[in-house]
Design a protein around this nucleic acid. Structure first.
Lengths: 194, 194
DNA sequence: TCCATTTCGCTACGCGAGTAGCGTAACAGA
DNA sequence: TCTGTTACGCTACTCGCGTAGCGAAATGGA
């Protein structure tokens, strides 16, 4: 049996590239599959043959530009944690990003087969943050019986919670208190106060 | 100048009641404004004259049945916190509720004028949780120099974070460790270990 | 009674998501 | 070259959100 017409391998790349641009230009709200298809020089049906829904395409596009943001490590665990939390808070402070993040979360809830892909998006950044703890342990900056995951959950979770759910402000003072409390709760000695 | 035709005051009540039913039956996904209007015996345009979007109506409907769930206070701060966190985790474990919560969050991000209303939904439950701390202080169970809001953020935030964003499991063991860490971070004496 | 005003119901429309079906193009193998 | 198979483009469709415009109903005031 013959192999049939081969898939145009350029389609994935072109469509995702256009999708990324459209996300940058108009955000999630103005992201229209028809327009993506047009600008990519592809039929809408062809798009839907690879990504079963608009959200699938959005997730695929976001996955390609989430790696751009790097985390700076200074070696000072507490300071690094504050910086990471501040970066997240700053991002969620922008309406466009807040909308995109919210929609990505909702996308995972709307379509179960997308959940894993969405979790994967945050997992990368979380893994990078966890590295900070390993480095801190290596430098004897802290004991190794603490649970880095738990500490991160408390810090990052609180930031997302306030920014997305309660709407409370997330300023620098709050972040310092938050990180201090989370570290103290895990028994990490207070390297340096506020 | 004459007063014009008076508004049918029964419309608000009837429409919200039907909306609540439809949410219970089919969740957020199957919630259609047309059907709500039909079942309420009202024209779709009339619905849109009061609630400018589907999300506005959903928020109005959710606001009427969120008060049903009460929080049980036993007087044991730690146990109560674990129970509250477990209740939230259990709720978010249900696909329908997880979707609804996600969509409500996204609704606030989509339409700025809805954000305040959505925050208000969670604010009531948060206020009830904060009361636990006041009671605990009254009973001398803890010092009064702790920041209840910060502790709640760490606990509730972590639960939402794991359930909605990272997708990590939220089991009982995790919750106990979480509450213990949050309380310890605030300097609350460990009333009882795991 | 006549008029201005406001609400209501209805029809029709535009838009974007997602689907179905058809003809055609691009292959592999006989 | 002929056949089977798969991908592509295109048209047309359904569905739900949200809007525009019209005539009728329900009021208060002249």
């Amino acid at each position: 049996m013959g192999g049939g017409r081969p898939r145009d391998t350029g389609v994935e790349e072109r469509v995702v590239a256009v999708a990324r641009e459209m996300l940058r230009e108009g955000g999630y709200a103005r992201f229209a599959v028809d327009q993506v298809a047009d600008r990519a020089g592809v039929a809408k049906t062809t798009v839907y043959r690879r990504w079963p829904s608009r959200d699938h395409l959005v997730v695929a596009a976001v996955a390609t530009f989430l790696d751009d943001v790097a985390i700076e490590e200074t070696g000072d665990l507490r300071a690094d944690l504050v910086r990471i939390a501040a970066a997240i808070a700053a991002g969620l402070g922008q309406p466009g990003i807040r909308l995109l993040v919210s929609e990505l979360i909702a996308a995972g809830a709307r379509q179960p087969d997308l959940a894993a892909s969405v979790y994967q998006l945050w997992a990368r950044r979380r893994a990078a943050s966890l590295d900070l703890f390993a480095a801190a342990v290596g430098q004897g900056e802290q004991a190794d019986d603490v649970d880095p995951g738990l500490i991160l959950d408390q810090i990052i979770g609180a930031v997302y919670y306030r920014a997305l759910i309660t709407g409370d402000p997330v300023d620098d003072d709050y972040l310092k208190r938050l990180v201090s409390a989370a570290l103290a709760g895990a028994g990490v000695s207070s390297g340096g106060l506020a």
